[in-house]
Amino acid sequence: MVRALSVAADFKEDGVMYAIAAFVVCFVIAESLFFIRKAWKQGKKLGISEEKLKNTVFSSALFTVAPAISILTTVIVLASALGLVLPWIRLSVIGNLAYETVATESMLGVFGSTLSTEITDPAQFGAVAWVMTIGTCFALVLLPITCKSIQKKIGGAVHKSETSSRSADALSAAAFIGVIAAFVARAVGGRIAADKITVGDAGVMSVCTLVTAIVVSLLLETLCVKLNLKKLQPFAMPLSMFAAMGMAMLLTAVLPDKVAQLTWWG
């Protein structure tokens, strides 16, 4: 009986599962290395300086550290039900916490179970893996068919409007600002879910974190320009992000709980 239970618990994290994860990780890294190599060669052909290319590598790696750790924490959230390896695989390809949670809950709901209990039936585990995969792979079906035509149409529109480069610049910036605006708005007035848990909802902490990130970023940018610190410039953004995360920790530690936990929807 004890052995049966331990086998049931182990199948999610045995050697074969780790081998499947290693295969997925190798694929992702190989694809990225391939594209980086090709882009690097093209960059040199276009006359982009080696320093600029190297700065792109270092600042992008630094930029990624905090969000990647945040993604890693979602592996832990899912691990209680699914073990470590399947969430690791899913979060390395396409997946994110919202997708995986809904997919898992939908499948477990059919079996009359939930994400809060550990899966011990291999058939349920296999079913969850199928639903996670099929639910999220549609973009990969669309891309080979549509990506080139979308790029051509957008590229064509941009080049046409380059007759008025002021308009092209403004519209290009507007598209990016539209993306950023959604997340700024969520930090100012959004809510994670319509339940009693308010952690992460917009409130004192989200607004303070947002404002700190903006202020530190502007200060660093000004410093870089005034003191001609060209090497610091690519790191201004990740440093501002870390400063804001530090501020979130500091405020949580020093503010009274009532203030730190104050959210607009609480």
Binding site: A66, I180, F183, L210, A213, I214, M241
Partner: peptide, 19 residues
């Protein structure tokens, strides 16, 4: 808290220059 508020930190820092 650092990880709970990683998105406001990220998009605040990214948005500052554009704003």
């Amino acid at each position: 808290p650092a990880f709970t508020y990683v998105l406001p930190a990220l998009f605040g820092a990214l948005g500052a220059g554009y704003f």
